[in-house]
Simulated assay, not measured.
Amino acid sequence: MSRSDYPPAYDSPPYAPQGGPHQPPPAYGFPAYGVPQPGPPSAPYPNDSNTPLFPGQPGGGYPPAAYSGQPYPYGHPGAGYPAPPPMPPVIPPTLPSGVLTSGDEFAASGRNWSDLGIRHAFIRKVYMVLAAQLLVTAGFVAVFTFVEPVKVFIKQNQALYWVSYAVYIVTHLVLVCCQGPRRKFPCNIILLSLFTLALSYMAGSISSYHDTKSVFLAVGITAVVCIAVTIFCFQTKVDFTKCQGLFCVLGMVMFVTGIITVIVLSFKYIPWLHMLYAAMGAIVFTLFLAYHTQLLIGNRKHSISEEEYVFAALSIYVDIIQIFLFLLQLIGASNR
């Protein structure tokens, strides 16, 4: 066989690369022969399952799985075990001097129609103010429940809750204890607006710790309870206004029980204690709602003066919001 019968060499046409010398193929992630190979890390070995064992190796293991009921996926700013929701604010209801009036029943024949018309106008005015307060609170609760970035912001900035708590306490005490600011316009409206915004923020903050189903359920039950209590107070012959001493004791019991419950739950969360306190609070403030509604109607032994529309709206508004918050706590604690 002659030399021409052999295949051409690789460095000659047609195998020779055009345009210059042949370049070696790119590396595929493996070091060349003779280069030191990376070895495992020296002892002690890392305990974290996500720590790579070799340089350049991506983190191993699986991302931590979300526990049952976790509202955020892994990597979300709000992921992790959520803190228990704050307890509803409780201040014992008080009745300062000059708010109540006593005498014959205004609906009796001894009263003339002019007094009855004044009382009806007073009731309409109170419920208009109350409706505006409830609309503001409903807006806060809706935003804090449905808008996810707001929920994350609330949980990461719990100091704002305590700021609103301080505003709530200060404005509440001023409106209850100071007759001048309570009756003088526009000071009373400004204080009542600050009070409403503070309590609405607190209600929205507590609602952000619960799922949408629990919030809707609490809203529905609260609406049914409030409507039923109002109809009952207009129709019944039972006079809750005679039991001022009983309601004072109930208010103090709720206040002391709330402080003890907060202290106990701050060290160790006990679901049944939380549920017991929430159930007791819902029942007590339902009774307060009946008491304040009869004071507003004025057809019993005691009634609220026609000049105290701010105090009347404040009292009923606090009762409704407290019923909602306690029911929400009860439903949320039962789902934990």
Results as ranks from 00 to 15, higher is better:
L116A: 08
G117N: 11
G117H: 09
I118K: 11
I118W: 09
R119V: 04
R119H: 06
H120T: 12
H120I: 14
A121E: 08
F122S: 04
F122G: 01
F122A: 03
I123H: 03
I123G: 00
R124S: 07
R124C: 05
R124V: 05
K125M: 07
K125N: 10
V126I: 12
Y127V: 03
Y127K: 04
Y127L: 06
M128D: 08
M128P: 01
M128R: 13
L130Q: 04
L130S: 05
Q133G: 08
L135K: 11
L135Q: 09
V136E: 10
V136T: 13
T137L: 07
T137Q: 09
A138E: 00
F140N: 01
F140V: 04
F140R: 02
V141D: 02
V141E: 02
V141Q: 04
A142T: 13
A142Y: 06
V143W: 12
F144L: 06
T145P: 14
T145W: 08
F146H: 11
F146N: 12
V147E: 12
V147K: 09
V147Y: 13
E148I: 13
E148N: 14
E148Q: 11
P149Y: 08
P149M: 14
V150M: 12
V150G: 08
V150N: 10
K151I: 15
K151A: 12
V152I: 13
V152M: 10
V152W: 10
V152Q: 14
